[in-house]
Amino acid sequence: MRRGIDPHPVCEADDGRCPTLAVVGETQCAEHLGWPLCPGRVGHTCTARTRTRTGDQCATCQDEARYARLDAELPVTVTDGTCPGHTGPCGRTAMPGDPYCARCRTART
C-alpha cells in the first residue's frame, strides 16, 4: 500500500466528526474555516449554497448572472427561424426555442 498525503481528507473540526471533505490544502471544510456563503446574484439567493474564501460569487452564480445579463442585453426579435444576429441578420438557423443561432448566442466576456 502506498502511503502519502490523503487526496480527499475529511474535515478535522468537531473532533473529526464533520462528514464534509476538507478544502484542498486545508485541514477543515469551508464552513469550519469560516468562509462566507456565496451572496448569490441580484434578486436571487445562491442555489448551490457554496462558500467562497473571499465572499464573492461562486462559479454557478457567476454563470447565472452572465446569462441573465445576456438575456437583458440581447434584443429578442421574432424571426422566421433565421438568426437576426447582433448588428444585422446573420442568416443562420436559429436554435430551437431561441431566436439566435449558437454562434450569435455565445457570450462575449
Score class of each variant (00 low, 15 high):
M1P: 15
M1Q: 13
R2C: 13
R3K: 14
G4K: 04
D6M: 06
D6G: 07
D6P: 06
V10Q: 10
E12W: 12
D14M: 14
D15N: 14
D15E: 14
G16F: 03
R17E: 13
R17F: 12
T20K: 08
T20F: 10
T20S: 11
T20C: 08
L21C: 09
A22D: 01
V24W: 13
E26D: 13
E26P: 02
Q28T: 15
E31P: 00
E31F: 09
H32P: 02
L33T: 05
L33D: 03
L33P: 01
P36A: 07
P36E: 04
L37N: 01
C38I: 07
C38F: 03
P39W: 02
P39L: 01
G40F: 00
G40E: 06
G43C: 06
G43A: 13
G43Y: 09
T45H: 14
C46Q: 04
A48T: 10
A48P: 01
T50M: 14
T50F: 11
R53I: 10
Q57C: 01
Q57V: 00
C61Q: 02
Q62A: 11
Q62L: 15
D63R: 12
E64W: 08
Y67Q: 15
A68G: 07
R69Y: 02
D71A: 15
D71T: 07
A72P: 01
L74Y: 06
L74H: 04
P75M: 08
V76C: 09
V76I: 13
V76Y: 14
V78G: 09
V78C: 08
V78R: 11
T79V: 05
T79L: 00
T82S: 15
C83F: 03
C83W: 01
P84C: 09
P84A: 11
P84R: 02
G85C: 02
H86S: 09
T87V: 15
T87M: 09
G88I: 08
P89W: 00
C90M: 04
G91Q: 07
R92Q: 00
M95R: 15
M95F: 10
P96G: 01
G97I: 03
D98K: 14
D98N: 15
P99M: 05
Y100L: 15
Y100E: 05
Y100I: 05
Y100Q: 06
A102Q: 12
C104H: 06
R108S: 03
R108A: 00
R108C: 00
T109L: 01
T109E: 07
